[in-house]
Design a protein around this nucleic acid. Structure first.
Lengths: 194, 194, 194, 194
DNA sequence: GCTTAAGCGAGACGGTACGTCTGGTCTTACT
DNA sequence: AGTAAGACCAGACGTACCGTCTCGCTTAAGC
């Protein structure tokens, strides 16, 4: 093949100065900070750039929207906070997950971002699509469900419905500024599905 | 003395020209229209005032925020769309309500406003309080629950939890741009609670 | 003629409640006060009405413009401050007048109002007409001129020109925020005219 | 070392995009036009920006006030219109200047702006300072005076007083909407000063 | 002594300019 | 070609004042 003339493994690389990973990280950290300090609504692209010590254009080069930055800044945190190790006791597995979910939604900065993004998604289709393809709740929820299915004789139940039943009540409560008792909720769910 | 005929009720009336109900209604209608035409995000106080043929100050005199106008513009619609007459069959009552809720959240303009407001509440405490005190979902949901309680031997269940379990799954699905099969969901709920 | 049936001198009087002189005076005093406290520019019709404890409409009923109120509020003061009693010494008469004029323009509240009105007249023809017909400087200046003419053999000199030569230098200086030595100026004028 | 070739003059240059001279000129031209079309009073910052096809912020970046724009827009015109070349005949020099001044004050757009600014200066100290430091009348007037002093044995006369005597009468007349016969005025002045 | 009519204080009305802010783009010099 | 900086146009923000209008009340004159 003529490829070998090129020499060994040439990394394809754009001409010009490469994008600065430093700038990208500075932005993500600035967003993290600002989310805590001023909240989602008061966060502006201008403010983010200034806080990060970065040009405004640079922010726009990497992310088209405030929402896109946030989703990237929070996805990792969210996955961490929602990961549960299945217990041998099905009800326990569910309770653990619901506890983690409740803390995430109510207390965690990442959860605050998630709630804000859920709101933003209601009037910005681009955010809605982004949230759908990066569904932060569904993935960890499915881990719980799979664990249950190996231990329980469960009623037929498609994943979408199950995720909604599992996460919906806590999400609605959190959005309304309330908390729920997770053990009672877990009991109901296991009872309904068994 | 004949004074006693008047009774103690003196209607207190502010001095000066009274507020114009016409102007108030014009704004509410303008908001209704704009919600359909341009959506929540693109709706501005300036645009509302212009569309209503009303001074900007007049809008601010009645409502402090876009959210406050919307909540007033939609509350009545919401109550109408979510009212269900309890059936003799408990599962049927639940399904009817879930159907209404699903249509409200997904198809109705009032529902779109509700979703937008839920988002707004996440970064504006004033809106959150307003939503909490005017809870559009809880009231109709409680009608369903009360009906169930007269027909079924239900597990102990506080209202807050019940409302969350009843509405939460559909709300989460709607916020994520999905729909659920309401009959399956109804079956699970009745099963869990009976 | 049948007119005599009406009887002698019938004061024509409009039906309804007569205008309140109290309100009128309250406005004039409010204007006086506000001119000192906040100055001409920061004085608004709304502020005047509130300060006078009077309805906004009442102000507009008596005067069409802020300028009209001011001219009425200051004309009397101005006439008083600019009145000079001719001396037997022509140069003295002129100096006395110029001193009064200088104090009026630079130190007196009425003078500040006059300067402001002179400015307003530049972009409001109504004010210009008002100022022309109520010329506050010309009348006292003419007293000085008439006195001079009886004592001196003066060059032919129409009043308009004389008033301009007499008052113009001080006015220009005052508008520019400067003062002039009035005795030197008086000497020049007497020299020029004799 | 070869550094000395560069010389010590380092042009200090702000970072970022430089201010656009195009925008600045567009504003000045818009102000010129608007002054003729709608006059000083009806000219608004908003209107200027729109007419210039320029952002509102850009206008505020260059000038803090409508008055500042106008003074810059008119200063050049004023200097041109008031420049006189001294004649060999002193009275002629004065008459020429007074003619130019009269035309400027009464007929020229720049003069209209000057009159408006003189008014504005009466209630805005910032404008007063600006007018004082950019005194449009004094500079050309001094040219006339200097010429006279070389040709005539003049009475002792400080510049401030001379400028006031020279320009004051015409200014007062113009502010009151009148004109004066400049030749008579010139005769008086020369007579007074010689 | 009732009616009529205008004036009164108060304050809401539709407009519109204010000066500030952010959004998203563009133009610099530097790396 | 990417970067920090910052100016660019556009337009919404909430406030202030404009001059007008609508309230309920008061004050006169005329019937």
């Amino acid at each position: 093949m003529p490829e070998e003339r090129r020499g060994p493994v040439v990394i394809e690389r754009a001409p010009g100065r490469p994008r600065s990973e430093d700038a990208r990280l500075a932005v993500l950290h600035a967003v993290d900070d600002l989310l805590l300090e001023v909240g989602y609504a008061a966060m502006t692209m201008k403010g983010i750039a200034e806080r990060a010590g970065v040009g405004r254009q640079t922010v726009y080069r990497w992310w088209p929207t405030k929402a896109h930055i946030l989703i990237e800044a929070c996805a990792a945190d969210a996955r961490g906070e929602l990961a549960v190790t299945p217990s041998t006791e099905p009800a326990r597995t569910v309770t653990d997950f619901l506890d983690a979910l409740s803390r995430f939604l109510t207390d965690s900065p990442a959860g605050a971002a998630y709630r804000a993004l859920l709101g933003e998604a209601q009037h910005d289709p681009a955010v809605r699509d982004l949230m759908a393809q990066e569904d932060l709740l569904a993935a960890p929820a499915r881990v719980v469900l799979d664990s249950l299915r190996t231990q329980l004789a469960m009623v037929p139940l498609d994943d979408e419905m199950a995720v909604a039943e599992l996460c919906g009540p806590l999400v609605l409560a959190a959005l309304s500024g309330r908390r729920l008792k997770t053990d009672a909720l877990a009991a109901h769910l296991v009872h309904a599905w068994a």
